[in-house]
């Protein structure tokens, strides 16, 4: 290639990228399908959103493929789940994309975990003998609808900064998304009377029941909270620690995981421990995401006559979980019917 043709190629590239910046909707790339769904709710028509990791894939293990690098190259905004969930592939994608603004620390790089409430944050020195543990805590935070609500706000804030012309749209969409989420959580009647924010604050504080009682509103409770209320304190078994946040929000408990340690597949010895524990405590439900092999769960379930619930833990993991709210809907409905 001679110098003249190189120069003209570079100039063409420059013109193309400028043209891209001026015309059309924002191009947003999220690492996970859950972030994609929430971002779509906030951005509306002002952006096209695509996700690197589809819901049918395990976000822990993905390869930094050239097609992902293409997505990142063209991104006006990069949104990641964070908490080292994508540590095995995000650095290679951001490195290969030649898009300085979306690198960590860049103005168009957003870590959605910035403000979420974190669980399983290690308080002691970590060791890989513990399996695939994450120094900043359990990264599957989106299964707590409150974290979904917080993430929506984090995304809206950044969108307003990146695309100020759309500020009004983003504010309105955020309000609509949070209202829809609050109504599914507490029921429309309660949200109308007290406002979602108050109900969430009470829920977080553990005083929702007494608050409703004092205001004579106990009968008005609907939504996920109402459906899950009878299950408070119930114990279930999961495959991986990816329901921790959900279970914590609705007052259930995970007795044990099928994985002996995060990221380590079930061993026969560990499964027999699981069987013993389930018998001992009368646990009858195993919750497993479709990305994991169902064999171990089925074997244990056959032994103790329990039910295996295969439920998406990310948007798109199963067809019914088509967006963020229906993802939570599905889990709540199935657990409420089974337990």
């Amino acid at each position: 290639m001679n110098i003249r043709s190189t120069t003209s190629l570079i100039l063409t590239a420059a013109m193309l990228s400028t043209a891209q910046a001026l015309a059309g909707p924002l191009i947003i790339v999220t690492t996970t399908s859950d972030l994609k769904s929430i971002t779509e709710s906030i951005a509306g028509d002002r952006a096209t959103v695509s996700a690197i990791c589809e819901g049918t894939r395990d976000a822990h293990y993905l390869q930094a493929r050239p097609s992902f690098i293409m997505m990142a190259r063209d991104a006006d905004l990069w949104i990641r789940a964070g908490m080292e969930l994508e540590i095995g592939w995000e650095p290679m994608i951001l490195d290969g994309a030649r898009n300085p603004d979306i690198r960590v620390g860049g103005p168009r790089h957003l870590d959605a975990s910035e403000k979420v409430l974190k669980l399983d944050v290690p308080t002691q020195r970590l060791s890989r003998a513990l399996g695939d543990v994450h120094p900043s805590g359990n990264p599957h935070y989106w299964t707590d609808p409150l974290n979904g609500r917080i993430v929506a706000e984090t995304i809206a804030e950044r969108l307003i900064r990146v695309d100020a012309a759309g500020a009004e749209t983003y504010r309105a969409n955020l309000a609509a998304f949070q209202k829809a989420l609050d109504e599914r959580m507490f029921g429309a009647d309660l949200v109308q009377r007290f406002g979602g924010s108050t109900l969430w604050a009470r829920q977080l504080q553990g005083t929702l029941d007494s608050f409703l009682g004092e205001n004579g509103a106990s009968e008005m409770l609907g939504g996920w909270v109402a459906r899950m209320r009878p299950l408070k304190g119930r114990r279930i078994v999961t495959y991986h620690k990816n329901w921790t946040y959900f279970v914590n929000r609705f007052g259930l408990e995970v007795a044990i995981e099928l994985e002996p340690k995060p990221g380590i597949p079930p061993s026969p010895a560990h499964l027999s421990r699981v069987v013993d524990l389930m018998r001992e405590q009368g646990i009858n439900t195993i919750l497993i995401a479709p990305i994991y092999p169902p064999r171990a769960a089925n074997r244990v379930a056959a032994d103790v006559r329990a039910k295996v619930l295969v439920r998406a833990h990310s948007v798109g993991g199963l067809p019914a979980a088509s967006d963020y709210l229906s993802l939570i809907d599905e889990i709540v409905n199935d657990l409420a019917e089974t337990l």
Partner: peptide, 14 residues
């Protein structure tokens, strides 16, 4: 309270 402000009950709690 306004949605992105710090003076609503949930925001205060967070």
């Amino acid at each position: 309270a306004p949605l992105l402000a710090g003076d609503d009950p949930l925001q205060a709690m967070l």
